[in-house]
């Protein structure tokens, strides 16, 4: 663990530069400890794959005070802690109009579409960070068989709720956006409402649950 200043307003706590559950656990535990410590002048924490960013106001504190406070609470060993991240289920209608690139992902992987769906929805994914757009989760743990290159040219508009694969990553677009990921399905669930809490946060888990088009329509009508 290394702490470095980011301009006058931030401290970046760095961990080994890998995407791993170990990092995610350590970052989640440290973030909890920092929040509980109520460091004077602290504004917010931004977790990422291998780092935790601490933002403060330089009118009230400075880097040395903030980094000393972080050091003071960083002794907690992640392996001693139960990480309390929750698992959020996201219903997904795979393929068809909702997942126009499912067939490409299948042919690229040499698997059937059913196998792609089974593998993709087969286990929960850790949320390592949110970024790019409000509520956009960066997920770890996509099965290597499903790694698929991004589109050669991005789509100008991807519908909200689209579930995609980009390289070694998978995720869900919480709002309509341009994007270059291979779209394999879509959720009828509204994930993002401006100014409202999100259904998940960094450190939680997302599990994609396959649903039929009929179920999609019913859930969409309920929303």
């Amino acid at each position: 663990m290394q702490i470095k200043p980011v301009g006058l307003t931030g401290a970046l706590i760095s961990f080994p530069s890998v995407i791993s559950d170990d990092n995610a656990d350590r970052i989640a535990v440290l973030a909890d400890a920092i929040v509980k410590a109520h460091i004077p002048g602290m504004i917010e924490l931004v977790p990422a794959f291998a780092s935790l960013y601490v933002r403060y106001t330089p009118m009230e504190t400075d880097f040395s005070a903030v980094s000393a406070a972080i050091e003071a609470v960083s002794g907690t060993d992640a392996t001693d802690m139960t990480h309390n991240g929750k698992t959020v289920e996201i219903p997904v209608c795979y393929g068809g109009d909702y997942g126009p690139d499912l067939s490409f992902v299948a042919s690229h992987s040499g698997l059937s579409q059913e196998e792609v769906i089974r593998i993709h929805s087969g286990h929960p994914y850790r949320i390592h960070m949110l970024g790019f757009l409000p509520g956009f989760p960066y997920l770890g743990g996509l099965d290597p068989r499903l790694h698929t290159p991004r589109l050669a040219s991005p789509r100008s508009q991807i519908p909200a709720g689209s579930v995609g694969i980009g390289g070694s990553q998978t995720g869900v677009y919480p709002m309509a956006s341009p994007g270059g990921w291979q779209l394999i399905g879509r959720t009828p669930r509204t994930l993002f409402v401006p100014g409202r809490p999100l259904p998940y946060q960094s450190g939680d888990w997302i599990r994609f649950v396959p649903i039929t088009e009929t179920e999609y329509a019913a859930l969409e009508a309920d929303a």
Partner: peptide, 11 residues
């Protein structure tokens, strides 16, 4: 290229 991390104003 780095593993994505937080960006500050002025970064």
């Amino acid at each position: 290229d780095i593993l994505s991390d937080a960006i500050a104003l002025g970064s």
